[in-house]
């Protein structure tokens, strides 16, 4: 496996509490990776270390190394704004800014100093198309993003991430607040962009993980129990804890 993201011996403490207990985990470039495990197992914490979102939490301290495309993202030289452009994030609750759809999608580009309307227009259309929401919003680009349904808002948020052309997309339970049809649209959309991005998705929906991901990692009590190809993890897990969790014996 060609490693695009490599985390070595990552520990994360919230004050006294050790939320991640020495995680060694890598991801190849491109494809969908699912992080699964019961609540409080550390999977969302792990996701957030990949674009330094935990920096924003006082009392959170981290040790270990995280490299993306060979670069240590915790080096003092790293510009976190730049990092988060390369490593975008989508959250559980759709969080569009209270502006128009167009302004939401171009937000990151404007911060990056792009003002050329033609470039912006072109990027908006491409991103909304990739996010599978273009047909639904193309005539209302200047309407408030808050007027959209939850499923549409989430796809606009994904378009906002795609617009800055990231390498990595982190998704933290992106469909758990959505109905099955909207969830299905997002799953289909992720499958169409899997060849272009390294996607890491935290999900409580095990069927979602098995349906769409190429690789799966199972976390339990701050530890990585097992990681591998999704088809092996779901048919022939190597650890009893994994078998028990995915079969609903606990969690």
């Amino acid at each position: 496996m060609d490693e695009f993201i490599t985390t070595n011996d990552v520990h994360l403490y919230y004050g006294e509490k050790e939320a991640l207990k020495g995680i060694n985990l890598s991801f190849p470039a491109k494809g969908i990776n699912a992080l699964i495990g019961p609540s409080g197992c550390g999977k969302s914490t792990y996701l957030r270390i990949l674009n330094r979102m935990n920096d924003l939490i006082p009392q959170a301290t981290m040790t270990g190394s995280v490299k993306i495309n060979g670069v240590d993202i915790y080096s003092p030289k790293t510009d976190t704004v730049d990092l988060r452009k390369k490593v975008g994030m989508v959250f559980q609750q759709p969080n569009p800014f209270p502006f128009s759809i167009y302004e939401n999608v171009t937000y990151g580009l404007r911060i990056a100093g792009i003002k050329d309307k033609q470039v912006l227009d072109e990027r908006v259309e491409r991103s909304l198309k990739q996010a599978a929401v273009w047909d639904e919003v193309k005539d209302d680009l200047h309407k408030s993003a808050l007027s959209l349904s939850g499923g549409q808002q989430q796809r606009v948020c994904i378009a906002r991430v795609l617009a800055v052309q990231p390498d990595v997309i982190l998704l933290d339970e992106p469909t758990s607040a959505l109905d099955p049809v909207s969830s299905g649209l997002i799953e289909d959309m992720l499958l169409t962009i899997r060849d272009r991005y390294t996607i890491i998705i935290v999900t409580h929906n095990l069927q979602q993980a098995s349906r769409i991901s190429d690789r799966t990692a199972f976390f339990l009590n701050g530890e990585l129990i097992e990681a591998g190809k999704t088809k092996s993890v779901f048919l022939n897990p190597q650890h009893q804890e994994t078998d028990d969790y995915i079969s609903g014996r606990f969690g």
Binding site: L206, Q207, S210, F234, L235, N236, P237, T242, D243, I246, S247
Partner: peptide
């Protein structure tokens, strides 16, 4: 029931 792993086997 959508069984997986040992149940599915």
């Amino acid at each position: 029931q959508q069984p997986v792993a040992s149940d599915l086997r």
